[in-house]
Design a protein around this nucleic acid. Sequence first.
DNA 1: GAGTGGTCTAGACCACCGA
DNA 2: CGGTGGTCTAGACCACTCT
Lengths: 243, 243
Amino acid sequence: MSSLHETLTTKFRDLILSNQWEPGYRLLFETELAEKHGVSRMTMNKVLSQLTREGYLIRRRKLGTFVAQPRTQSPVMEIASVKTQVEALGLNYDYHLIDREIRAATSNEKLRGEIPMDHTANVLALQMLHSAGDSPFCLERRIINIDTVPGVLDVDFSEQTPSEWLRQEIPWKAAKHTIRAVNADTVLARGLGLALGEACLEVIRRTESAGQWVTIVSQTYPSDRHQLVTHFTPTGERNHDSM
Amino acid sequence: MSSLHETLTTKFRDLILSNQWEPGYRLLFETELAEKHGVSRMTMNKVLSQLTREGYLIRRRKLGTFVAQPRTQSPVMEIASVKTQVEALGLNYDYHLIDREIRAATSNEKLRGEIPMDHTANVLALQMLHSAGDSPFCLERRIINIDTVPGVLDVDFSEQTPSEWLRQEIPWKAAKHTIRAVNADTVLARGLGLALGEACLEVIRRTESAGQWVTIVSQTYPSDRHQLVTHFTPTGERNHDSM
DNA sequence: GAGTGGTCTAGACCACCGA
DNA sequence: CGGTGGTCTAGACCACTCT
């Protein structure tokens, strides 16, 4: 934390994560930044190289250094995008909005620790079904924090999935995934066309941006239509696919 | 791939991954390495710093630079270590070897692509039950590639779990996880004390080292006793817990 | 052609830590 | 105290790419 390049690295990273430097923003040139912050060009280069390695910046000769677009194509997001999963299987993707309501957060949602206890404002609750080639593929139940996503009430989610819309709207978000197995209850069985009690894989994703929760989504798949695949290396680099 | 420091970085990384530089091995000092490879100290420092960031090296002033121990404590391994999971719950951990046999790989295992079709040698097949405070917690079914783990046939796995033993024996291994939901069949139901058909979370891990498969393990948990948690950030850094 | 990032060097000073 | 890693600098040359 004490060295010059580390200080500058965290400073720049924070500016990007807090969206004060928006995706696409062109930074000053390396020499200008070095002079402005009173360091040598080598030191500033260390900072910019590191942030480039971390994926925050994109550098192009002659053009300059730019804040990267958040990785919408990253393996993380592949898990999220049901549409991509279905199309990867060579099947027609379709989705259908089942329900949309504006309501208070339930105490159940608060008790699970997903929403702060003192969150009193209403949330937008959506329920939808993703299908692959005429057969149901995934039942999605989502709530959205209206405060953190201004304008969300005006969007018609019957044409664009909330996942797609939010991805464009909220850059640099962090997520927590919880994965578990559940037996199909009546809602799931009817929605997904399964027998009661059939094993399903449920992926719950809680998304944060700038320290605030944005959306919480539960996506439930029939076990025979979905599994998660993850690759690990000893140093902690990982890749995720969905199958 | 063309720059000096990148070439040296991959060269050193390969030496570590292939175990030619074993964990704990002390490298030459920075100045010596620089001279030996005909580069400046700054360039060699870039190489060593990068590999330290990646977790391959550990550097200590005055002592020197050492190859790191593979991360036995990493989040990846936490998923693997059932013992750690149980103890994190504050429960007594115990495990029991149910079955051990030496047999040919089944065509089923080969067809799933987990084992090369031309693998004709026998494998060691183990089946065991992990329990948490007197109640069953996880049913584990494992096969081990005898060729890649010399001495495995002499080990008594009734005292030490194969997971622990293999972790010490095979450093720098890569793994692929497949996660899915299954209904409890008769074997699972009896082993885990569940009703037939209850939803279970199955984690299948295929481990490789130096390009060869080492072990394939399936760990099945009752859905109410286990779920996976994963944290994501926009740049692709991830952390895994198990709950 | 011109300007930017990419890389490398030689040298320097310092902090830390083990002896 | 001495040696090692950690860091920073000033300067240099090159490659790439846009104009």
